[in-house]
Design a protein around this nucleic acid. Structure first.
Length: 398
DNA sequence: TCTGGGGTCCTAGGACCC
DNA sequence: TCTGGGGTCCTAGGACCC
């Protein structure tokens, strides 16, 4: 079959990027009317050591408080702020309610995180009107149903929509007309270039590229020669707002991890191993809950001086039982740990996680491991059904 | 009282195979 | 004899994002 190009009209794609404004803090303000209009800081309470700000309400941002800021600094800047540790289950609940609303507007909602999503609004005009009109409707519906505001970016390029949604927060709406993507990008300061963080910005500046315009003036080859194939190509496309920069492709790998920063550095082996056991149990539990498996274990250690190392190992068969898993973790720890340094953080991860249904090479010998795995699975199921039951290794009981 | 936790992707080097 | 080239898998460290 042949379609004549002159007849087939080129379809202009329409993407929304929708971002929930100061999400965690906004949920708190919604649920607690006393908090409204006040600086709310989610991430930790006064006295929590080594915490950081997760989300600051717009009232708190006026004091200079922002995400990822150490909590002690936020307290310095905003001593009268309302400090909250956070209620993740509640945020998940509100998030899924909002994502549900999104799915009434588009058959293709690509959720990027708990508080943002892309909506493919291509061809939705007969249902919701022009993109701008549709966005107004969507914002209104979210507000009426949840009391929260969202910011929307509209563009035929996902990348540009993503940047546009961040421009007029909170409660913003920014539309970049089709064909104006490049112009739009050129009007922005370097800090708005999503995907180029602190380190890259620094490198760019050192190269004399202090503006998006300056990057735009360089050839693709030059950018690649400085920043490498991947990042060079990214920069070249990003400053042009190129449409082929898509999000939401199936990711190649998946991992499950847990890590913990200790209020004080751990120095003795027993405490370190106990903490390791606790974290290991946590990730293993999650792996069972998600019905997946993995042959690769990774251990992460951050020392008191903030240097961070990792060690990983891939085994011939998936790790399923807790005893075996912990022993493997402990072995990795022995190989890597510098005992002369205090341990600030320990993390454990399963890498290259895959669905349980995919076939796997059976181990030739089975040293009673299947039995142990069965028992543990039963315990996990029990905990699942009744969260009040907590079966924990004696060592973890204080 | 400096610097969370859960992720993804990239790079560079080494092992190993043909 | 002293040395190749491609491909794949694995590992450790980094950058980045929310």
């Amino acid at each position: 079959m042949k379609a004549s190009p002159s007849v087939r009209k080129k379809i202009t794609r329409v993407f929304f990027h929708v971002d929930l404004d100061a999400f965690f803090a906004s949920v708190e303000q919604h649920d607690n009317p006393d908090y409204r209009g006040k600086p709310v800081i989610v991430g930790g309470i006064k006295g929590d050591r080594r915490s950081v700000v997760s989300t600051a309400s717009y009232e708190a941002r006026k004091y200079g408080v922002h995400s990822a800021m150490p909590l002690f600094k936020a307290i310095e800047l905003c001593p009268n702020g309302i400090f909250i540790r956070g209620r993740h289950e509640r945020y998940e609940e509100v998030s899924s309610k909002i994502m549900n609303i999104f799915s009434n507007y588009s058959p293709e909602v690509i959720q990027m995180s708990i508080d943002e999503a892309f909506l493919d609004m291509t061809g939705s005009e007969s249902l919701f009107g022009k993109p701008h009109e549709a966005a107004v409707k969507l914002k209104k519906e979210v507000y009426e149903k949840t009391g929260l505001t969202v910011s929307v970016g509209i563009s035929s390029s996902m990348y540009v929509a993503k940047i546009a949604s961040g421009l007029k927060k909170p409660d913003g709406l920014t539309e970049v007309p089709d064909g104006k993507e490049e112009e739009f990008m050129l009007s922005l300061p370097l800090e708005k270039l999503w995907g180029a963080g602190e380190k890259t910005a620094e490198r760019l500046r050192k190269t004399g590229l202090t503006t998006i315009k300056a990057i735009h003036s360089k050839s693709k080859e030059l950018l690649i020669s400085i920043f490498g194939q991947s990042q060079g190509t990214f920069l070249y496309n990003a400053v042009r707002g190129n449409k082929e920069m898509e999000f939401g492709k199936e990711s190649k790998t998946h991992s499950i991890s847990a890590e913990r920063t200790f209020p004080y550095d751990l120095t003795d082996r027993y405490s370190i191993e106990s903490a390791l056991m606790e974290t290991a149990h946590h990730v293993l539990y999650r792996m069972h809950a998600e019905k997946v498996r993995s042959c690769t274990i990774a251990l992460k250690i951050r020392y008191g001086d903030f240097t961070t190392v990792r060690i990983q190992e891939t085994y011939s068969s998936p790790v399923t039982n807790a005893h075996d898993f912990f022993e493997k973790c402990r072995l990795l720890l022995s190989k890597k740990l510098d005992a002369s340094k205090g341990v600030r953080l320990l993390g454990v991860a399963f890498e290259n996680v895959e669905k349980k249904s995919t076939p796997v090479q059976q181990e030739l010998f089975d040293f009673g491991e299947k039995k142990r795995a069965k028992l543990e699975e039963a315990i996990y199921n029990l905990e699942d059904k009744n969260p009040a039951i907590k079966i924990t290794k004696a060592r973890l009981l204080k």
